[in-house]
Nucleic acid binder design. Sequence first.
DNA 1: GGGGGCTATGGGGGG
DNA 2: CATAGCCCCC
Length: 753
Amino acid sequence: MKSYLKELNDVQRQAVTRVDGPVLVIAGPGSGKTRVLTYRIAHLIEEGVPPWEILTLTFTNKAAREMKERIANVVGDKANRVWAGTFHSIFARILRVESDKIGYPSNFTIYDSDDSKSLINAILKELNLDKTVYNANAVRSRISYAKSDIIGPKAYKEKEELMQQDRMSRRPHLHTIYEKYVARCKRSGAMDFDDLLYQLYILLYKNKGNVLEKYQQKFKYLLVDEFQDTNYLQYAIVKKLVKYNNSPENICVVGDDAQSIYAFRGATIDNILNFEKDFKKLKTFKLEQNYRSTDHIVQAANEIILKNKKQIQKKIWSDKGEGQKIKVIKAMTDSEEGKRVADTIIEQKTRYHLKSSEIAILYRTNAQSRVFEEYLRRHNILYRVFGGQSFYQRKEIKDLIAYLRLAVNPNDEEALRRVINFPKRGIGATTVEKISAIAGETDRSMWECLEEVQASARAKKSISDFKKIVKVFIERAKTANAFELASYIARQTSLLDILKRDTTIEGMGRVENLNAMLDGIKDFVENDEVIEGIADTDKSLATYLQNIALLTDLDDDTIEGEYVTLMSIHSAKGLEFKSIFVVGLEEKLFPSFMSMDSIEGLDEERRLFYVAITRAEQFLTLTYANSRYRYGKMQYNEASRFLEEIDFDHLEATFSIQRKAEAATTGAKVMGNFKPLNKIANTTLHADPATFKPDSSDDIQTGMKILHLKFGEGKVINIDGSPGNQVATIFFKGIDNPQRRIMLKFAKLQILD
DNA sequence: GGGGGCTATGGGGGG
DNA sequence: CATAGCCCCC
């Protein structure tokens, strides 16, 4: 047996060595999914498959990069020639080569979501539609859904169901916006994120020049990671590539329905379910052993996911021992939550010698990071925040990028609008709208009709000056490399000088950012390492721009070191840490108020919670705050229902005792919120003064069941304070504020057992 | 056309 | 709280 096969368990090995025909791997968290994928690719190569005939599609660049590294560990340099990347980046690469077949230039611009939104807002204005009703985000997600279901503007209009929904949500003109949006992207030579998939599908579907057969031949083996997060469109493309007459159907998909957390961008679990129908010769493997977490964590995860309706039956298990119980921290305010988490991190670092890099704080929304940053800074703990605004979304960076985009593709309207009057050159909103109107009437890009506008002599002069400098950029782009051009533009447009005038700390940060951007471009140009095969050796500015459009700051692995990781749960998927803090476990925050009104929405939130806790190897801490600042207002929150869904046995004593008592008085572990008790339960044992015999306070110890003359039966949770002044924290079930602090030297307590 | 200051509004996850 | 949009004045 090949040595790498010995590193696999039986099921993993079967999944790796079954190379021909369709394979589905259902992989629970921590079950060695990446190992199976990478070893499978390595095995294919060892069996003689040329690496460039293998296509691996992932969701993040990070996953793709990691996979290549791990394949290289087994097969060496050949790993570089495997096609491995995100759906978006691989498809963008193909579209760059084939775009002429669907009427796009090869130097097409990729619109990010800000570009899409601003285009939608421009269209709303032109159509005179109320932007509170036609909210740009809502419109964008509607268009995105349509594309993900392969419904173009024309088909959209003909689908009565969709039109009905739009009328119901008082957005009857949505299809018009969609139609205009698509037209505007086209005439700008731009594709949004969904287009990278949608247009590739169109390319394969139209099959001009037998481009479909070309890629069916090219990619003999296909692998898809995180298959549960694919949408209808992605699956349709995959099928186009591997399902045809006499196809060997060499496709392997890996996924876990329980970790599907991207329904909001069109992902559907149906793809896993349909997979079995679409590929009759399918062989399914289930990876159920968890190699990551200790048992309390694994079992808690199992219990939680059971609450969901739809799922593929599986039971995840671990042989790592029962491990630590899950700690629950209840804080009064968000600020206290931050403090207690920082304190706990210090404690874990000293008591268990955890390194910062082994710890992560995970939250539902990126906005929650601030308090944790504050307290970590106070404690001098290094941290790094992922997500939120990425480097390339900063204003100063986007401004420079907009000029670069124009130099590559002057039809790019969003770029043009962004910089036509920045820095100020006297082309105001009125003039821009006039240009836009001409463009709309004649269906050309704004760039093409710049000088046809009726305006004051001064405005016309400004416009022709603007056109002149952009033309210079376009010319230079043909000969100069990306770095030379970018530096030239930064100087010529005085972007850098303007920033330098701002001497505030933020202003200086912006100068640094712009310089860092220039350095980044320099790196891109000067990195002349040529990797044989398909690896990117294209140093053109167009390629650079398309690359960075698809980067997130999760992909920035240049910063290495000892820091605590702060990120959203979504971006933590696929990662693991010794110690995980899942924070902000409150109703309306997690689960999010946006998802609370439907079962499907709640189920997805629950899967998200499942993903969150299964990131932990040894320590899991769940926290919530009674009140927190949100949108500048104080909000009062109940603890998340998800906390209730974990069996008490997996929780640390304090919290589980409290919860047990509450469950006893409320009658059940019902779904919903647990509020402070306000009734005295009739089951509570009250002390009878006649038979009450207090024991000596010196004998009271943590964990004892005791009887108190006034409060009744209780359990000692903790004893602290200096000798002679000891204070016991006792939980009395069935009274208001059940947790009481009692001075032992005065207390009259009878020990029950 | 440009700039400052005020008010209203939205508010999630990401490629 | 952050941002967009508006009004007003230069």
